[in-house]
C-alpha cells in the first residue's frame, strides 16, 4: 500500500473521529446516533442539528481552507514557514471584514455573501498591492521579496484594524473577540456563506497541484518543464486568497492552521503536492474541529477563542520547523 493511500485512509478516519467527538462531547453529552435516530430525544436533536453540527461543519470548512491555502503558498514560495498570514492576505481579509462590520455595509444582491465577498476583496486587493510592490522592488519577483512585502503590508493593515477598533467604542469587545477567532454561535447561515467559495478556491488550487510540484524546483525550472508560471502563480494566489478571505470572514483570525497541517502532512505522507493538497484539506478540517472542541470544553463553561488553541499548538511547531530548516541550511 502506498504512503499516500495510507494517508487518505488515516486522515478520513481521523476526520470522522473528530466529527463524532465534536458532535457528542460538550456540556451536554449527546450520542452520535442522534444524527440519524428519528426517535431520539427532541432536546438532543436540537442540540446536534442547531448548535453542534453547524459548528463542527464550519470549523471543518475553515480548517480545511486555511490548511490547503497554506500548503499552496508554501509550495509556491518554496518556504515551509509561509502561510496565508505571511503574504498579508489574512490581514487584508480582516480589514475587509472589519470594514464591513464597522461601516455596517450591506449590499442587497449579495445578501449573506456580503461579508465573505468583502473579506475576499480585501484579501485580493492586498495580494495585488503586494505583488505590484514586489514587482517594483525586483522585476524577477523573487520569493523573498514577496514575503518581505507581505510582512510590511501585514503590519500596516494591522494598524488600520487597530485604528478602526479604537474608533468603534461600543462594539469594541465584539470585534476583538472576532479577531481572536471563533466558530461559536454561527449557525448554518455561515456554513452556507462559506461553502461555495471554499469549493471554488479548493478547486483552483487542486488544478495546480502538479504545477506546484514543478515550482518546488524553482520558477525557472518549472518554466523549462512547460509550466506557464505567470498564469499558474496568479491562479494559486487567487485561489489561496479566496479561501483565506472566506475563512477570515466566517471565523475571524485563526493562525497557524495553514502552517501546522501541511507540515505534518508532508512529514507523515511525503511532499508530493498531488496528495499534500487534498490531505491538508482533510486534516485541516479534523484539526480545527478538535481545536474547537478543546476551546469550548477546557475551561467550561467559559469558551476560549479558538485562535488561542491553534496558536498554542502552532507557535511551538513554527519554532520547530524554523530550527530544523536553519539546521538544514534551508530558507
Amino acid at each position: 500500500m502506498s504512503k499516500a493511500l495510507i494517508g487518505y485512509i488515516l486522515s478520513i478516519v481521523a476526520l470522522f473521529v473528530a466529527i463524532w467527538l465534536g458532535v457528542s462531547v460538550g456540556s451536554v453529552k449527546v450520542p452520535i446516533s442522534t444524527l440519524w435516530d428519528t426517535g431520539a430525544d427532541a432536546i438532543a436533536t436540537n442540540i446536534v442539528w442547531k448548535i453542534r453540527m453547524p459548528r463542527v461543519v464550519l470549523a471543518g470548512l475553515v480548517g480545511a481552507s486555511l490548511a490547503i491555502a497554506g500548503a499552496a503558498f508554501q509550495g509556491l514560495l518554496k518556504n515551509p514557514l509561509a502561510d496565508p498570514y505571511t503574504l498579508g492576505v489574512s490581514s487584508g481579509a480582516s480589514v475587509g471584514a472589519v470594514a464591513t462590520l464597522f461601516f455596517g455595509i450591506s449590499v442587497p444582491f449579495l445578501g449573506i455573501y456580503t461579508l465573505p465577498v468583502f473579506s475576499m476583496i480585501g484579501a485580493l486587493v492586498t495580494m495585488l498591492l503586494v505583488i505590484t510592490f514586489a514587482k517594483l522592488v525586483d522585476r524577477a519577483m523573487k520569493m523573498e521579496t514577496i514575503i518581505l512585502t507581505g510582512i510590511i503590508f501585514s503590519s500596516f493593515l494591522g494598524s488600520v484594524i487597530s485604528l478602526m477598533i479604537a474608533l468603534t467604542g461600543e462594539e469594541l469587545r465584539q470585534i476583538i473577540g472576532w479577531l481572536l477567532g471563533s466558530v461559536s454561535m454561527r449557525g448554518w447561515s455561515f456554513v452556507q456563506m462559506a461553502l461555495p467559495f471554499v469549493l471554488i478556491g479548493t478547486f483552483l488550487l487542486w488544478l495546480n497541484r502538479r504545477e506546484l510540484n514543478a515550482m518546488l524546483f524553482g520558477e525557472e525550472r518549472a518554466q523549462h518543464l512547460g509550466v506557464n508560471v505567470k498564469k499558474r502563480k496568479m491562479m494559486i494566489l487567487i485561489g489561496g486568497s479566496m479561501l483565506t478571505g472566506t475563512a477570515v470572514a466566517v471565523s475571524g483570525t485563526i493562525g497557524f492552521v495553514g502552517l501546522v497541517v501541511p507540515h505534518m502532512t508532508r512529514l507523515l505522507f511525503g511532499s508530493d503536492n498531488r496528495h499534500v493538497l487534498p490531505l491538508s484539506f482533510i486534516n485541516g478540517a479534523a484539526l480545527l474541529i478538535v481545536c474547537d472542541l478543546v476551546s469550548r470544553t477546557i475551561i467550561s463553561p467559559t469558551e476560549l477563542p479558538i485562535g488561542v488553541i491553534t496558536a498554542f499548538i502552532g507557535a511551538p511547531v513554527f519554532a520547530f520547523i524554523f530550527f530544523r530548516q536553519r539546521k538544514k541550511g534551508g530558507i
Partner: peptide, 30 residues
C-alpha cells in the same frame, strides 16, 4: 506556449537546491 516549448526543448540548469524532499521517481516523472 509554455507546454509546446517544453515539448520541443528540455533544459538542464546547474545544480539547484530545493526545500521539500521529493522521491527520485516523482522528480523524473515531472
Amino acid at each position: 506556449s509554455s507546454k509546446e516549448l517544453a515539448k520541443k526543448m528540455a533544459v538542464l540548469p546547474q545544480l539547484h537546491s530545493h526545500t521539500f524532499s521529493h522521491s527520485v521517481r516523482d522528480t523524473i516523472a515531472l
